[in-house]
Design a protein around this nucleic acid. Structure first.
Lengths: 214, 214
DNA sequence: CCGTACGACGAACGATCGTTCGGTTGCTGC
DNA sequence: GCAGCAACCGAACGATCGTTCGTCGTACGG
């Protein structure tokens, strides 16, 4: 499997070994840097199609060495999904997401969701592709559904308050809203110009529409 | 792998054997019915996580029997992707997609794309999840990009004609447009009420927006 | 300058992968 | 009623999967 183009003997970005004040040594790879490498591989080949051999090769060490730092494949997945979910759920805890009229809260959440999608792109990408094969994946799916349900409930509130134009079924609007925002992971890549204006542009587009009304 | 909940010994829907007029026998399973079974499994577990054992069990026969009907796993994938791509590209050949002002053509294509997405749901779902690990997957990815490029070009034409409201960057609008439409596969399931009105609702929402302007 | 702890490594484990093969069964056309 | 063939099955193949283990080299604390 994973007949993807074999990458060249990837140069490894090692966090230089540093001595702690108490004399404790730090590993050459910290857990988060190996996680970043692994998530990048997961996203290009897909989680199931990525072997531990692929991961260790991308990190520049052998498979057995890789296991010296991580506990297993699924633990890597869980850590990545945890990070993505933490970023998303933290949005709901912000004051601007909890106070004020539903429509205003909704717009704030969408703007922040775009920001988290772009800043935590690899982790959220992995989250949005989970299928539910293992217990870890099912847990992530359930948490993700809970997040979407929060937004859907907010859309329903906005409709009930008369803040959203009539004729739009709330559940359909919420689904298309989430779908539109989440689709950003399919094309956004960090470092492109105008990335800082993206959140506002997205909020504007879901508000005004893409095409003009007929 | 594929620790997904083991389904009960699935009852098999066999197309009853029929004698052809010329005396040719038809197999108990025709190729398309086995393809449908396989694609359904691919979509629930993911292509890589689905084993040939899973497919044959879903069809109600053993793995070796399954190979009597199909030539291999990747051939199944290719046939499914072919069907999805054929459905999408056929839209571009319709007269209403080739004649008239860009905005009108665009709206027609979107409406038809929603229809194809729902009528060919399993196949399009598989197409939208392809990652590019094998030559077949890369071929499907390239064809899909060509389809998206056609729509993006049409959006650019509409903007150039002054038919789309100002302030929307054409490439961003096109990407969010495709993302919105494609996200339907994440939640649409056949047989739900109001399915026939979905295409028009989607066209309306991408035209008027989801939330009211601030 | 030595002892040790840790990072890296090769080899191998059982399991499962996609695929093949030879043989059995039961219906069909003649 | 017999020959033939399509459908089916059990068993096994080489490969690769995720994971484990014992060992080696070496940089660092003492």
């Amino acid at each position: 499997m994973s007949a993807a183009p074999a990458q060249p003997p990837t140069p490894v970005v090692r966090t230089r070994r540093a001595r702690g004040e108490a004399g404790a040594r730090r590993p050459v790879y910290d857990a988060s840097s190996l996680l970043a490498v692994a998530v990048a591989e997961f996203n290009t080949r897909g989680y199931d199609a990525t072997s531990m051999e692929d991961l260790s090769r991308a990190a520049g060490i052998t498979k057995s060495s890789f296991y010296h730092h991580v506990s297993g494949k699924e633990e890597l997945l869980k850590a990545a999904l945890q990070r993505a979910l933490d970023g998303l759920f933290a949005i709901l805890e912000e004051p601007a997401a909890q106070e004020g009229p539903a429509l205003r809260r909704l717009r704030h959440i969408i703007r922040r969701q775009v920001e988290v999608l772009t800043s935590e792109l690899p982790y959220v990408t992995l989250l949005l592709r989970v299928r539910g094969n293992t217990e870890t994946e099912r847990w992530a799916l359930a948490r993700r559904r809970a997040f979407d349900a929060s937004i859907a409930s907010l859309v329903a509130d906005a409709v009930a308050d008369g803040e959203v134009r009539a004729g739009v079924e709330p559940s359909l609007a919420a689904r298309l809203l989430s779908g539109t925002v989440n689709s950003i992971i399919e094309w956004y890549r960090p470092g492109r110009p105008g990335a800082d204006t993206l959140p506002d542009e997205v909020v504007r587009i879901v508000s005004e529409g893409i095409l003009p009304p007929p």
